[in-house]
């Protein structure tokens, strides 16, 4: 699996480094500086992909060890959700980097649609699985998702989501960014096929994060809780990082106004948070696995 990810990264890196994209022109960079900029992005991306894969596989391995246990089905669904998130990260980068090669081709219309609509669906599946798995944890420990704190957070989320949808529906966006169309469908269609899946995904991701944190706090077992804490912290970081990243993708026009330094800073911060999240999941899953195999 690791070799598949490395092969996909090689494709991504080649597409990125040889890209006819006008990013350099946008920031008035020389060609060697543009090359360096792409390199400064593709290398950390490889690290994050590999860390993400190892984290998701470590958790899947743990879910496999506990087959038959009361929490096994929940953990397996969460592991599948994490693996779909790895697929999401890869699809997002690959689809985004194919576009510049087709900027002047008639295929650009459906490629842009593919870039805009496929990742939200993968993300919806991933967060949906995380939510289903976390919800089933209520069979192991009695906890309720809807406490006063989580309800208020949800109200805040719904207000944010409504404002976000309204802003998306009413604000004019430039036709293209670096010569590539941002959207190729009408706003009402995009609201249903792109914004709605993102919002549903964020909603389920938030609920999954609540459930996993509550489970980690309330489940019996001093050592089990210690091991699970890392996994819970990791999943919360991953959900948060991906949700923030997606808000920025949809609000790409705000990013276009940022200086190159600020843009890189935002990107590195998100890569670091996501990478840390998956690393916490990996170390937590390894600790949980140790509880299962030590004799």
């Amino acid at each position: 699996m690791q070799w598949v990810v490395i092969a996909l990264w090689l494709i991504y890196a080649t597409l990125s480094l040889l890209s006819p994209n006008a990013t350099g022109n946008h920031y008035h960079l020389a060609s060697w500086q543009t090359f360096g900029l792409h390199l400064a992005i593709v290398l950390p991306v490889l690290v994050v992909w590999l860390v993400a894969l190892r984290g998701a596989l470590a958790f899947k391995h743990y879910a496999g060890i506990i087959t038959g246990g009361v929490e096994a089905r929940s953990m397996n669904l969460i592991a599948m959700g994490l693996l779909w998130l790895v697929a999401y990260l890869i699809s997002l980068s690959l689809l985004g980097n194919i576009l510049p090669y087709f900027a002047h081709s008639p295929a650009i219309t459906w490629l842009v649609s593919l870039r805009n609509q496929v990742p939200p669906l993968i993300n919806l599946i991933a967060f949906g699985l995380l939510y289903l798995g976390s919800h089933r944890l209520q069979r192991v420990v009695t906890f309720t998702t809807w406490t006063r704190g989580s309800s208020w957070l949800m109200v805040a989320f719904l207000i944010f989501a409504s404002l976000f949808a309204l802003e998306f529906a009413t604000t004019d966006v430039p036709n293209n960014l670096n010569g590539i169309p941002i959207y190729t469908m009408s706003r009402p269609v995009l609201l249903v096929t792109m914004i709605l899946p993102y919002m549903l995904a964020w909603f389920m991701g938030l609920l999954a994060a609540f459930n996993i944190l509550k489970y980690a706090r309330q489940v019996k077992g001093l050592l089990y809780r210690q091991a699970l804490r890392g996994v819970a912290r990791g999943i919360v970081a991953i959900v948060g990082c991906i949700a923030i990243f997606e808000v920025l993708i949809v609000a790409v026009r705000f990013l276009a106004g940022l200086s190159l330094g600020s843009l890189l800073l935002v990107m590195y911060a998100l890569l670091l948070l996501g990478g840390l999240g998956f690393w916490w999941v990996q170390t937590g899953a390894q600790q949980l696995g140790k509880l299962e195999v030590t004799e």
Binding site: I66, V70, V219, K220, G221, L223, L228, E292, E295
Partner: peptide
């Protein structure tokens, strides 16, 4: 054992009994 290992306890105890 559940006080220490939570849901992993039944498997831990079964392993100890079977193996040792």
């Amino acid at each position: 054992t559940e006080e220490y290992l939570g849901p992993a306890a039944p498997r831990f105890v079964a392993r100890q009994i079977n193996f040792h």
